[in-house]
Amino acid sequence: MQRLNTLTFKQLRALDAVARTGSITRAADELGLTPPAVHSQLKALEENFGCSMLSRKGSGAFNETPEGAELLRAFDKAQAGLELAIHRIEALKKGFAGTVVLGVVSTGKYFAPGLVARLRHAYPDIEIILRIGNRDAIITALQDSAIDLAIMGRPPRDPPVESLLIGEHPHVLIAPPDHRLAKGGSITADDILSETIIVREPGSGTRILATRYLDRIGEGRPYETTEMGSNETIKQAVIAGLGIAMISAHTVTEELRTGRLRAIDIDGLPIIRHWFLLHRRDLQLTGAMRTVRSFIEQEKGSFLPRMT
């Protein structure tokens, strides 16, 4: 360890320069030193290791000894590692590298992977860690500082956040294509409330929106519900004829396009909510976080699914 503590980069650079040029004088010119200064560095190096690092026959050029060659190989690796570190540090300072944990509510899983792919293509040295959960889970992760940025609907009150609107988020009532409510015509609140309504689990933003809508049109009248834990399960349940459901249009674009599901045409629908990108107000954004935030802002919602 003592040898390592007294080893300096000046000594290693002197050894490298003399081994490459074969001359102390040429090495001194390259390093901007005097020949005695280069000789002094080499002498200190050899005294440290107790062996010769260079050999010379007569008046010929200097060549590294086996011990010197071993040390130079280590020096090359160290120098390459430090150059990489310098590059990484500059990238981190400029926001082109780092790690960002992005939390997305469950409904966003239909577009979040595509967004992450765009980010990785634009900034390959930024690692994006994607976390998916329902609204309550994402809010809890924000409170616990377990995520850096979040994409969700209505921003929470706790914790206080800075939010950026990134696009519209329509919600529709869906039914199977042969359902009586999918055939058009005049549809009333009673028609809706007489159906079994398939809803998400408590804590889901979609469930909160559906409950508010049904309570409003029904003026507080009761209705039958069936709870299911994912959008995929709800879609399959509606297709199977188990009921109707309010759901994010972004989760059913393909089913609506192919006719496997139909959006119920009734006044007041679709309900247009919005997607927000947000982070804790007290969070000190790293360069990578600022870069990701700016990228998503500049995309202007182009990564969101489009209703047909």
Results as ranks from 00 to 15, higher is better:
residue 1 M to L: 12
residue 2 Q to Y: 13
residue 4 L to H: 11
residue 8 T to H: 11
residue 12 L to V: 13
residue 17 A to I: 01
residue 19 A to H: 09
residue 20 R to L: 11
residue 20 R to N: 08
residue 27 A to T: 04
residue 30 E to K: 07
residue 34 T to P: 11
residue 35 P to Q: 06
residue 37 A to M: 08
residue 41 Q to D: 11
residue 43 K to M: 12
residue 54 L to Y: 10
residue 55 S to R: 15
residue 58 G to Y: 13
residue 61 A to Y: 15
residue 63 N to R: 14
residue 69 A to L: 04
residue 73 R to A: 12
residue 74 A to K: 06
residue 85 A to M: 14
residue 95 G to N: 03
residue 98 G to Y: 00
residue 98 G to H: 05
residue 99 T to A: 01
residue 99 T to F: 03
residue 102 L to P: 08
residue 106 S to T: 10
residue 110 Y to V: 15
residue 110 Y to R: 02
residue 111 F to G: 04
residue 111 F to Q: 01
residue 112 A to T: 05
residue 115 L to W: 06
residue 117 A to W: 08
residue 117 A to N: 10
residue 131 R to F: 08
residue 137 A to F: 10
residue 137 A to N: 11
residue 141 A to K: 03
residue 141 A to G: 00
residue 143 Q to M: 06
residue 148 D to F: 02
residue 150 A to P: 09
residue 151 I to L: 07
residue 154 R to E: 13
residue 158 D to I: 01
residue 163 S to Y: 06
residue 163 S to A: 14
residue 170 P to I: 00
residue 172 V to I: 12
residue 173 L to A: 02
residue 176 P to A: 04
residue 177 P to N: 00
residue 180 R to N: 07
residue 180 R to Q: 05
residue 185 G to S: 00
residue 185 G to C: 06
residue 193 L to V: 15
residue 194 S to W: 11
residue 197 I to H: 15
residue 198 I to L: 15
residue 208 I to E: 10
residue 210 A to M: 00
residue 213 Y to Q: 12
residue 219 E to H: 13
residue 221 R to P: 12
residue 222 P to E: 13
residue 224 E to F: 13
residue 225 T to C: 08
residue 226 T to R: 14
residue 233 T to N: 14
residue 234 I to W: 10
residue 234 I to D: 09
residue 248 S to C: 03
residue 252 V to R: 03
residue 260 R to I: 09
residue 267 D to R: 13
residue 268 G to V: 10
residue 269 L to H: 07
residue 269 L to C: 03
residue 270 P to D: 06
residue 271 I to H: 10
residue 286 T to N: 05
residue 288 A to G: 01
residue 290 R to H: 08
residue 293 R to P: 12
residue 294 S to G: 07
residue 296 I to C: 05
residue 303 F to C: 04
residue 308 T to A: 07
